[in-house]
Structures are given as C-alpha cells and as structure tokens.
Simulated assay, not measured.
Amino acid sequence: MASSPRKSRKGTDAAPLLVPARALRRRVLRWAVRGVLGVAGFFAVLVLLFSFLNPPVNIYQLQESARVGGLQRDWVAFDNIAPVMGRSAVAAEDANFCLHWGFDMNAIRAAVAEGGSRGASTISQQVVKNVFLWHGRSWLRKAMEGVLTPAVELIWSKERILEVYLNVAEFDEGVFGVQAAAEHYFGVDARSLSALQAARLAAILPDPKARSASNPSNFVRNRTRSIMAGAETIAADGRDGCFR
C-alpha cells in the first residue's frame, strides 16, 4: 500500500514563524513610539515648570562641582540684576535677541558662509543647552536643542529666558550666575553692577576659564569697549524692549 506523500516542512513551518515576527515588530514599534512620547512629555513638563520655577543644578554644573570641589551660585531675580547687565549680555552674545524666535537666521547664514568658523547660537539656545541638555558636540544634542528652543520661546517670556541665562552662565571655574560673578570679581551685588563691570562680565563669555573680568587682558579690554558701545546702541534703538 502506497504511503501518503509527506507534507512540505516549508509550507507548515514558515507561516507560524511569520506571525511572531510581525507581532515582535509591532511591539517594538509601539514601545519606540511610547518612548519618544514619554521623553517629549518629560521635557514638556520641565519647560512648563521652569517657566516659573528656578531650574536646579544642571549636568554641567554637577560635572564642574565634582571637578573643582564645589560651586559658587546664588540665584537672583531679574529685577535684582542691573539693567545694564542684561543689555551687555545681549550685546555680547545675541544682539537680535528681542527680534528672533530662538534662532538668528542671519547669524546662521553668516556662520555657514564662513565655513562654521563663528558661532551662531542664540541666548535661547544656550539656555536650552545649559538647563535641559549637556555640553559637547553631537547630532543628538543639536537635534534636541532644535526642538526644545522653539518650545521655550513659545512658553517663556524673553525676560525669563534672559533671567535664566544670567543665572546659569559660567563666569569662572565653579562660579555660576551673575550674582556669584559680581561678588567674585567686584565684591558687589548684581543689582549694583556698573556699565563697565557688566560689560567686563559679558566680555569673558563664552570662555570664562581663559579670561578674567577683574584682571582683563587686552582682548577683554577691547571686547569690553565694544560691548559697552553695543549695549548703548541696543538701549537707543529699542532692541532691549522685550526685557527692559
């Protein structure tokens, strides 16, 4: 008696294998979407909270604290910072601060034209990097900065952005914020800074480890004069209107 033909293993085994593979792909995709939404929600909550709550110590400050053995930092409200300090910081780092939505496209185009030899980061971008992210060059950080900067601009006021910037900026090794910097270099409160002192502090950015506001090099002196002139121009033409 002839035996019945054997069933092909290909026909019986392949189909059951396809089902788990598809299910696995769907599961991975679901978890990936949940992960992205979870990260987005986390940062959305932080952006909202920090619009009125002062950010705690950030990643870079923790790194510097471990390296130098402590930090000098003392948060001060924007109303307790000399107005000339805000104008000096804007003149030094982001002259069109009141005119853009987080990115200065003219500065970016100029940087691209010069082959990337000059920086184009706005004060808003620097706040996002310092408060929410980490230092260092990577595509991931730049991508996250690109997403978070418009969100901060949308929810925070320009005055709040500048207040946070002045309170988290590094002014010397282990010295963060304008209040600690004013005491460290000049022995005064941030509210009492003169135009010269404010310009000196702005002049040491963004390289405070190599520059000094109390013992300025010729470079810092020249940059100070330029910043003082820029701050006066910003006050005269109204480009300080969003934080005046």
Rank of each mutant, 00 (worst) to 15 (best):
V127P: 01
A110D: 14
L18I: 15
G115T: 09
G116M: 12
R200G: 00
I161H: 01
H135C: 00
D237G: 04
H184W: 11
A77N: 11
R239N: 14
R34M: 12
A92C: 06
V68F: 14
E114D: 13
P55I: 08
D240C: 02
G119C: 10
F97S: 10
D104G: 08
A21L: 15
S65H: 08
A236F: 11
L46P: 04
R6L: 14
I234D: 03
T224I: 02
K142F: 07
V147P: 01
E145F: 04
W75R: 06
E232I: 06
A89Y: 06
W75G: 01
R141F: 08
S192A: 15
R160N: 06
N106R: 15
G69R: 11
S192P: 00
A210W: 01
S217L: 09
F52C: 04
L53S: 07
D172T: 00
S157H: 07
E173K: 13
F176T: 02
F171K: 00
A107P: 05
K7L: 14
D104M: 10
K129G: 04
L154G: 00
R239H: 13
L201Y: 02
M105H: 12
E114W: 01
T149C: 05
T233P: 00
Q126I: 06
R109E: 15
V188E: 05
A82W: 04
A21W: 14
P208R: 03
A181E: 08
I155R: 11
V76H: 03
A91H: 05
G35A: 10
L18R: 13
E145V: 03
R239T: 09
G174A: 07
N58A: 10
L162K: 10
L196Y: 06
E183R: 15
P208F: 02
C98Q: 11
S3M: 09
A190K: 10
A120Y: 12
L46W: 07
G69D: 12
A143I: 11
Q125V: 08
A23V: 15
A151T: 03
A15H: 10
L133E: 08
V147E: 00
Q179L: 01
G41P: 06
K209A: 15
A169G: 00
R9K: 13
A107K: 11
G102T: 02
A213L: 05
L24G: 13
N80Y: 08
R25Q: 13
P5V: 07
V84Q: 02
T122D: 08
M1Y: 12
T224P: 05
F43K: 01
C98P: 06
A92V: 08
N215T: 12
R244Q: 12
E170Y: 03
Q125I: 07
R109M: 13
L133R: 04
T224G: 04
F52D: 07
D79H: 01
N130V: 01
R26Q: 14
L18Q: 12
E64R: 14
